[in-house]
Each structure stands twice: as structure tokens, then as C-alpha cells.
Nucleic acid binder design. Structure first.
Lengths: 113, 113
DNA sequence: AACTAATATTCGAAAATACGAATATAGCAT
DNA sequence: ATGCTATATTCGTATTTTCGAATATTAGTT
């Protein structure tokens, strides 16, 4: 029973464990957007976007509303935004490490060019 | 640059995207525990525990302290506990769905026996 | 009915993750 | 040095995730 609850939580985290999916949720912070608008803003493949949206839907992080031709997505529960806000504080608190990571990536990119 | 930051966030969620790792962090809610104590409480393989601890260490979610023979783990930043608390509220808010999931699992288990 | 636009699903291949078994390392006691 | 306990790492394999290409679906338009 406890196990199933943890699995449920793990699934939630899993849903957010991808940069594109985080970007999607961040875009929806201030309200709904159509799938097309998300694709345009994120500059990703249509199929890929649809797959990630499917993941977020399956884990009940997003809800969608059909309007004629298009589908509008929004974050289901404001608590999710709250989680991301806390994360923001978390990253702020550990900014030095984030910067170290960024510098390492930057360095690696320079080498590979 | 924004991408790298999102990757960083995604890594954090990825680190928590496993029931065993959530269980580990929950066990450490009230302070440090040795690896052995964690293994005993969670009833998992030693190697497996060590692998999960390595993941949590790599993502800077846990810190460890060596004391003679053993290694004590603790949650690095209380903000992480705060995130889990918010999650608790989140799951409480959506308890009906959690229960539906649990029932479905229970049903599946009955069929498979 | 045929056509177009918006979105979703399927497929196959590549990469990442998870597990237990086996092995390695490190500290302490004899 | 040998042995013992606690923890970490490596290895092989099975499963899961991710992506783009191709295809399907659904709604609106002519």
C-alpha cells in the first residue's frame, strides 16, 4: 500500500524528469496554450511535443481542452506551480553549483567545436 | 543557457523518479541514517541500495559522512523536504485518483494470482 | 466528397535505467 | 598479515525512454 503510494509519487517526478517537459510546464505557468503555440515557442518537432504532452497528460499534470481544430493545455493543479517555485528557490540556493555545471558544459562545447 | 538550467532541474526530478529513492529520502526526513540502517528499513539488496544512494549523491540530494566502518547519509537541503511536503499536499488533494490507482493495482494483483 | 490544418499514435532504433550476482575497497579487530 | 563487516563498483541483461519518420485521426473548408 505504502509502496503503491511511493510509485505514484515517483511517477509524478518521472513526468517532470525531462527538460522539454519542464519547459512545457513553465510555458503554461500563466495560463493555457494550444499545442501549436507550445511547439512554436519551444522550437521542437510536432511528434515529439505530442509525445511529451501525452506523458504529462497521463500523469495528470496537464489537462486539455478541445476547441475546434486545436487543443489547449493547462496545468491541472496550482500546487504543481508551487512545487516549481520551491524548486526555483532550491536552485537559487545552490546557484554556485548550477553555475559550475553550466561552465563545465560550456567548456565541453568549446572543446567539441 | 536556459536549456542547461532546465536540464539541471530535470536531473533533480529524475533523481526522485524512483520509489526506492523516494523511500530513502523519506527515511532521512528526521536526520541521518547509515547505509546499513536504510537497507534494513527498506528491505532491499545491498548493491541496489548503494546504487540508488549513488544516484542521490550524484544529484546532490544527499550528503554522506564517513564514520569508521560506516557511512551516514542525510538530506543536504531542507528545501528538498519542503518539496516533498508540498507533494504530500498534492497527493492529499488528489487522493481519489491515488485510491483509484491503488484499487486498479490491487485488482490486477488478484487476477495474477 | 476532397482538401487542408492541427494534433495524436505507431514504429524502429539508439540511449539510459534498473536489477542481482560477483567483485572490490576500506576500516577495524585479532 | 588475516579475517570480518560495511559499503561501493562493475558486469551482463532486461526493461524503459527518447527521438524522428511515417501514418492516422479529427475538425473545418471548399
Amino acid at each position: 500500500m505504502q509502496d503503491a503510494l511511493r510509485q505514484f509519487k515517483a511517477d509524478f517526478f518521472q513526468a517532470l524528469a525531462h527538460p522539454t517537459r519542464i519547459a512545457i510546464v513553465e510555458q503554461l505557468r500563466n495560463g493555457e496554450l494550444s499545442a501549436g503555440a507550445l511547439i512554436e515557442r519551444l522550437g521542437i518537432e510536432q511528434a515529439n511535443a505530442s509525445q511529451h504532452l501525452a506523458v504529462l497528460r497521463a500523469k495528470n499534470i496537464l489537462i486539455n481542452r478541445k476547441a475546434g481544430n486545436q487543443v489547449f493545455y493547462s496545468v491541472r493543479d496550482p500546487l504543481i506551480i508551487e512545487v516549481l517555485d520551491i524548486m526555483r528557490r532550491y536552485f537559487h540556493a545552490h546557484m554556485s553549483e548550477v553555475l559550475a555545471t553550466l561552465k563545465a558544459i560550456d567548456k565541453a562545447e568549446k572543446i567539441h567545436r
